[in-house]
Amino acid sequence: MKNPFEKLDKVLEHRMRLQILSVLVANEAYDFNSLKELLDVTDGNLATHIKALEREKYIATNKSFIDRKPNTRYKVTEKGRSAFRKHLDALEEVVKQQRK
């Protein structure tokens, strides 16, 4: 059998990226500040990982202004959704194999 570790998505091996994607898969859209509060992380840290996900086109960004304050909303793309699902399947396989 093939090594299930190889099927894991390299981009999603950072837990925070996986967490960001989890929130976006479960919700239609989420804004930067709410994500920051939910994940309890710093601006810089969150921004770095969001950039990594954007680079892979796993998430799409929508910038707008509310009361002149910038409001950035993120959505998961189809590519991101399928990567998330595959990564989850791979994680499951890893867990199964470890239990054997």
Binding site: R15, S22, V23, A26, L88, V94, Q98
Partner: peptide
């Protein structure tokens, strides 16, 4: 390498917390 069980746990908890 992360602990995959912890990853799955983090996903489950966040999906629940972000929706409800």
């Amino acid at each position: 390498m992360n602990d995959p069980e912890k990853d799955i746990e983090a996903i489950r908890s966040l999906m629940e917390r972000s929706v409800k």
